[in-house]
Design a binder for these strands. Structure first.
Lengths: 147, 147
DNA sequence: CCGTCGAGGTTGCGTTTTGCAACACCCTCG
DNA sequence: CGAGGGTGTTGCAAAACGCAACCTCGACGG
């Protein structure tokens, strides 16, 4: 937090570049599943059911944005809403079978792509990047949580 | 490329989460300079002058998108276009003084933010994340380049 | 039991971000 | 000089997003 400040500007630039580029690239990789749809389905699949509010918190977006995107996914038949027994306000969101299918296809392409981009990396390096990003993301959740 | 494949799905998820979250967060951090404007000015400042086509290649966006965003920055007085002597087609883009000023302010906030999120990290870890991301981004440029 | 309030979502409206295709302009080269 | 390619711009349309108002349901105090 003192001397490594020289690394921070560089880190910020890499984060910006990645953030701006990754979305455009994902659209090209799996045109049948937009980046937004992919991110939501991926998250729902991982957690096996989440509420809209969880997604709002995860991505730091407005409720209305998530609401619309969920509605779109539902209308496309890629996601189902499940009522929660003890609470009629909330609903659990889960990918449908077709949603899982499209997700699997998009995943496959994404994995191949990232594989290609990390060709020549040692397994430790790939693991290290994953772990550091996971830590950064987790910290981001915490910081954003108090906003 | 063989055994580290178990890390790839996790890495993809972290990249997706980061990409989707980073933009929204940046908007909150510096409302006076949108994420798009910030990314462009930051890049122009770093290279001290670039052409629109460079930005297209860097972010993988459509020419028209960059063209509009550059026009917007110019109209806002944050960027100037410089003609290139031997070639009247191209133009060098540079941040204006006011552009550099706003960029510096946004930078300061971004650095503070990233600092906060890496609080408790060792300098080596911050450096490692920066270096690995830089490598990934560089590889991404190469892969995207053949598309 | 009933009114109030907060949690969880949805919708109307406007803005921003982006892609595609057609175009205009300039340079190069046969 | 004329064809072709590199460099941007613009018309049009769609996707992504925020804000504010609203609705519904659940919890809780009087």
């Amino acid at each position: 937090m003192t001397d490594d400040d020289t690394e921070v500007p560089g880190l910020v630039r890499e984060l910006v570049t990645l953030s701006r580029r990754f979305r455009a690239n994902a659209e090209r990789l799996h045109p049948d599943l937009s980046f937004v749809d992919y991110s939501l389905l991926s998250e729902l699949s991982e957690r096996d059911g989440a509420r809209a509010g969880d997604l709002v918190g995860l991505y730091g977006l407005n409720k209305s944005t998530i609401s619309r995107q969920v509605t779109a996914l539902e209308r496309a038949g890629l996601l189902v809403r499940e009522p929660v027994p003890g609470n009629r306000r909330v609903q659990l969101l889960r990918p449908s079978d077709r949603g899982r299918e499209l997700l699997a296809r998009a995943d496959a392409r994404m994995y191949r792509e990232v594989d290609a981009r990390t060709a020549g990396w040692s397994p430790e390096e790939v693991g290290a990047l994953r772990a550091l990003l996971a830590r950064y993301n987790a910290a981001a959740s915490a910081v954003a949580g108090d906003a």
